[in-house]
Simulated assay, not measured.
Amino acid sequence: MIDERHYYVYILASGIGGTLYVGVTNNLFRRIPEHKERKADRFTARYGVDRLVYFEAHDTIDAAIAREKRIKRWRRSWKVQLIEKDNPNWDDRFAALRP
């Protein structure tokens, strides 16, 4: 469940095995629609990266940013493993988050 007192590291994909984007936010309900509407980021808009395939919560912004930076440095294969551990079909998890 999404809690507004947390910070989130998330991974978006353009599709199964597609382009990946790693980001951080304090509000997934605001940020993910920005990506879907192509308003958030030039990279995600250009490559159609708007499928929420992974996210995790952190108690502090510092912890979330540190984790985001760490994941961004990972090899692609490690990111794919992280996604597929709980989301083998790369489903868009955003719709399921809505209350």
Rank of each mutant, 00 (worst) to 15 (best):
R51Q: 09
R51L: 06
L82V: 11
A40C: 03
R73S: 15
D41W: 06
A13W: 04
V24Q: 09
A40E: 03
V80S: 05
R5L: 07
R98H: 15
Y7N: 09
W74H: 11
R75A: 08
V24Y: 04
R38P: 00
H6F: 13
A45E: 10
V22S: 06
I2R: 02
K39N: 03
K72D: 09
Y8M: 11
V49P: 06
W78P: 00
H35D: 10
K79E: 11
K85V: 01
Y7Q: 05
P88S: 01
K39C: 00
R51T: 04
R30W: 15
R51G: 01
A63Y: 06
Y7V: 05
L82N: 04
G23A: 01
V53P: 03
E56T: 15
A57T: 13
Y54C: 02
T60E: 05
A96S: 15
L12F: 10
Q81T: 07
K79T: 15
L97C: 09
R46G: 02
P88N: 01
A64R: 06
L12C: 05
L28A: 08
D86R: 11
T60F: 04
V22R: 02
E4P: 14
D62A: 08
S14Y: 01
I83W: 08
A95N: 13
K39W: 00
V80M: 06
R5K: 14
E84T: 12
E56H: 12
R76Q: 07
D3T: 10
T25R: 11
I65D: 03
H6G: 11
A96M: 13
H6L: 12
R30M: 13
T60K: 11
K79S: 10
M1P: 12
K36H: 07
A13L: 03
E56Y: 09
K79M: 15
V49C: 02
V80P: 08
G48D: 07
H58D: 08
L20N: 10
I83K: 11
Y8T: 13
F94L: 05
A45W: 09
T44Y: 00
W74N: 09
I83N: 07
D50F: 01
A95V: 09
Y54V: 09
R46D: 08
F55C: 02
W74V: 06
A66S: 14
S14M: 02
V49I: 14
L20S: 06
A66W: 07
G23N: 02
Y21L: 02
L52Y: 07
I61H: 08
A63S: 12
D62I: 10
N87F: 00
V22N: 05
E84H: 11
R38I: 02
P88E: 03
Y21K: 10
W78Y: 11
G48S: 06
N89V: 06
V9I: 13
L52V: 05
L28C: 09
S14D: 07
Y21D: 06
N27Y: 10
R70N: 12
E34K: 14
E68P: 07
